[in-house]
Design a protein around this nucleic acid. Structure first.
Lengths: 345, 345
DNA sequence: TTGAAAGCGCTAACAA
DNA sequence: TTGTTAGCGCTTTCAA
């Protein structure tokens, strides 16, 4: 059965389509009795305005596209929920797509989104080694775009992200205050600004505490669980004996914890652990992991708000970069145990 | 800047709009030289067909709507990814929305999705206490709909879900084989078929093992972490002394673990724990929790396939109910410790 | 305050 | 094989 059209509603209610349209759009130019009659007919016929027709006429889809790397990384569902809430509040819907951090997927997704005439794009960029022509093409086409979480370098684009340098510094300060000096760092792909920032924060704090940087304690992975697992095994079997590990994100931390467990080491007894980004399940298990918790929901929420603001006012001359502060949540994984051999040397 | 239209492309290429349309749709009725000229012009003008206009004409949006309860429950991201992959493979995009298990949100979402004229709806129903008129309205309107995860009762609708009875039985069998007889059950809202099924599986196995059901060991919550936490505290302080707890989902298990930890009990030393549904972070912490792992990705994937199949062939006379089997993953949380007082009575 | 009608960009039926 | 055109359902002017 076909869906009712505005014409059918108008006929049934005994008014013109213009009047029905006015009622739909909440115009107060319509007499109360007519308005009631129309609304009643709408309910009666279970009428739902055809969005495609409306889009065609107004050239607005009220659709936003969002490209994230992977929804199964718990950082992104929160971000997606923030985006959804902000979008719905303004009458928009969001199509979310996963790039898995693969450049070709990102390109195809962006292309599909353009065909759909989305009113704006939220993008968590994949590492691209400088191949950013497809992103520049979006900017050139005047589709409003805001980058989330990862701020691409060398592209004039607005963004909302966590202040990763400050967040990392806060965490390292905590570790150093506990007496740790041999702190290892498991980082993400250094193409990504966020990965660089976390490494930078690490270096800053070591320098501030007059701790010499030991290159062998800095390992680079790719923000995935498998990578955290491998690097941790490698690190713990390297004989470099760090007393603490700082991990660049939650997924890697999961791998690190598994490796520590498998090697029969105790955390925090044998080794302390702290993470940038929250860890799935954190707080329900032992040890609760000390984590720099990002305002993921806010990144999504403010990203949409910024996007729609820019859309409303026209793209600003200079891009806006919003930096949100993270929060340090101290857990058992960096707890000092009296009996612990960790810091006694 | 406006985007190019098919008319402009036709003019520039010196052909009619009909010809451009034929080229776009890959018709082989077009002479090679014209086709090349048109394709060249399309590339030149960076033309992208207007999806809204096409939708209006063909009354197909190639959009699917998906309503889930909460993306931050890790079960759903997997399901969403399965749906996305299956949809993209057939040229569809998915709009995912969270109902938070609230009936009014579900209604509003369904209404928005209908306005968007989505080609099909994937729905994880919220508990509704029999208020399912809005779902029946979708069915009446002939929009293909497939329910995921939770099979609503008394509504003729296709679905893809986990075989919760069998999954629970498998898990209880494991617990009973370990010698447990005082097994508590923390369930979800009994309005939901999945919650009922899990309880049913529990009862089935106790009956099979000739264990009398003790009502005080069966607590009912709402599938959320807070509920798992509260019920576990209540249970452990009740003096009923269960030796094992079976929890109805992963989020509740997180709460249960936290409660056990806070009360200073050891798992599995003092109490064993098993869960229907996986637990966030499981496997990286101690204890790894014995879990009935659902094929979440498959539920999403097969849900979309079923939906599109039904759309292609017309709604079938009788709804199809697909039941997928879960897998029991045994962890440390149900490990028998020689020193454990648990089973010595 | 209400109605009539043009037209958004496309597809598909039909004509040439 | 290619061109012409009606019309999808809506918003929005303009007239009444």
């Amino acid at each position: 059965m076909r869906m009712a059209t505005i014409k059918e509603v108008a006929k049934r209610a005994g008014v013109s389509v213009g009047t029905v349209s006015n009622v739909l759009r909440g115009s107060n130019q319509v007499a109360a009795n007519l308005r009631d009659r129309v609304n009643h007919t709408i309910a009666l016929m279970d009428y739902h305005p055809n969005h495609a027709a409306r889009s065609l006429k107004t050239s607005q889809t009220h659709l936003l596209g969002m490209v994230i790397s992977d929804l199964t990384n718990p950082f992104f569902p929160q971000l997606a929920r923030g985006a959804e809430d902000a979008a719905i509040k303004q009458g928009y819907l969001v199509i979310t797509l996963n790039s898995d951090d693969q450049l070709d997927r990102e390109k195809r997704i962006l292309s599909a989104l353009r065909s759909r005439r989305v009113d704006g794009i939220l993008l968590v960029v994949a590492p691209n080694g400088g191949h950013d022509a497809h992103i520049r093409a979006v900017i050139a086409s005047k589709i409003p775009i805001v980058c989330l979480d990862r701020v691409p370098e060398g592209i004039p684009v607005s963004s909302v992200a966590t202040d990763a340098v400050a967040g990392t510094e806060m965490c390292l300060r905590h570790l150093i205050a506990l007496g740790h000096r041999r702190i290892a760092m498991l980082g993400g792909e250094l193409e990504l600004k966020t990965a660089q920032d976390r490494l930078q924060g690490y270096k800053n704090m070591l320098a501030e505490a007059d701790i010499e940087i030991e290159p062998g304690l800095i390992l680079t992975g790719d923000f995935r669980t498998a990578s955290g697992y491998l690097l941790t095994k490698q690190l713990l079997l390297s004989g470099r004996n760090p007393t603490a590990i700082f991990v660049a994100n939650g997924m890697m931390a999961l791998g690190a914890l598994r490796a520590i467990k498998e090697l029969g080491r105790q955390c925090p007894g044998d080794i302390a652990l702290a993470v940038f980004d929250d860890v799935p399940g954190n707080g329900s298990f032992f040890p609760e992991v000390t984590a720099v918790v990002q305002p993921a929901y806010q990144i999504g929420y403010q990203g949409v708000e910024l996007l729609l603001r820019q859309r409303a006012t026209g793209e600003p001359r200079t891009p806006v970069q919003i930096l949100l502060q993270a929060e340090l949540r101290i857990g058992e994984s960096t707890q000092l145990l009296r009996t612990s051999p960790v810091l006694t040397r």
